[in-house]
């Protein structure tokens, strides 16, 4: 049974009749040009945007869940994050436990270890570099252990090592009942780490399926208006822009 099933979901000027599903244990990559609706789609799930149409989470409509029940099942890592106050890294990660109304030290320190920020637990978050902060924001979501982890461009502001590290981490997170839905711009990374891809174009689903089905020359030309050279069988997969 699908964890999430979206039927004819629309959002004024941003999404038009989107049909999409997310399976347990799956990493689903949302790709598409700027303004294609990737962020809006993630926001619909996370309760940030109100939509028309139906989203089912497990066996009930998303709108039937209370905010807290939904937050326990779905965690959102927004594209840009900033702490208004100079909170400690530990306090930021503990924020992920808010829907559970506990501070569960084991889960907090486990999330910190997974993202490699455990040595800074007492540090003020605003004294870390951008890349280090990005891992703290992710640790915050991981601490809530959501069934569905929604990540909006988690690779932005990360160096190459941590791009791979975070994607491996998300890949491993999507085990058993847990799934990950993330938006990203790097198509070869998307082909390498995602089970399925959803190519969005002007608020509509242009293509949905395995990387090989979605990343075709025709699709990419139609959506991105660029010629690409593809070799998805290579390790790592090659998607390079010719022009």
């Amino acid at each position: 049974m699908a964890v999430i099933k979206m039927t004819d979901v629309s959002l004024a000027h941003r999404l038009a009749r989107v049909n999409l599903d997310l399976q347990p244990g799956e990493v689903l990559g949302l790709i598409g040009p700027n303004g294609a609706g990737k962020t809006s789609l993630l926001h619909c799930f996370a309760g940030v945007e109100s939509y028309t149409g139906e989203i089912r989470l497990l066996d009930a409509a998303l709108s039937d869940y209370s905010g807290e029940q939904r937050a326990r099942l779905m965690g959102l890592l927004p594209q840009r994050c900033q702490s208004a106050w100079s909170l400690s890294v530990g306090d930021i990660i503990r924020l992920g436990r808010l829907p559970w109304r506990d501070d569960c030290p084991e889960k907090v320190s486990q999330a910190a270890r997974m993202t490699g920020v455990n040595q800074w637990l007492d540090h003020p978050v605003d004294q870390l570099s951008g890349g280090e902060q990005a891992r703290v924001w992710l640790a915050r979501v991981l601490a809530g252990e959501p069934r569905v982890l929604l990540a909006d461009e988690p690779l932005a502001s990360l160096d190459l090592y941590y791009q791979c590290h975070i994607l491996t981490l998300l890949r491993d997170y999507a085990q058993g009942e847990r799934s990950v839905m993330l938006s990203m711009h790097d198509l070869s990374m998307a082909a390498r780490y995602c089970d399925r891809l959803c190519l969005l174009h002007q608020g509509e689903v242009f293509a949905l399926g395995s990387p090989a089905e979605v990343l075709t020359r025709e699709n990419l030309l139609a959506v991105y208006q660029v010629q690409v050279q593809l070799d998805l069988a290579a390790t790592p997969p090659v998607v390079s822009v010719i022009g």
């Binding site: 926001h43 996370a46 309760g47 940030v48 209370s66 905010g67 807290e68 029940q69 939904r70 937050a71 326990r72 779905m74 965690g75 959102l76 927004p78 994050c81 900033q82 702490s83 208004a84 106050w85 909170l87 930021i92 924020l95 808010l98 829907p99 924001w137 915050r140």
Partner: peptide, 18 residues
């Protein structure tokens, strides 16, 4: 709890169920 959640902005507070 809302005030704490809002430290990371309205989107995060909303997504945390607040």
């Amino acid at each position: 709890r809302l005030l704490l959640g809002l430290s990371l902005g309205e989107q995060v507070a909303d997504s945390l169920g607040l």
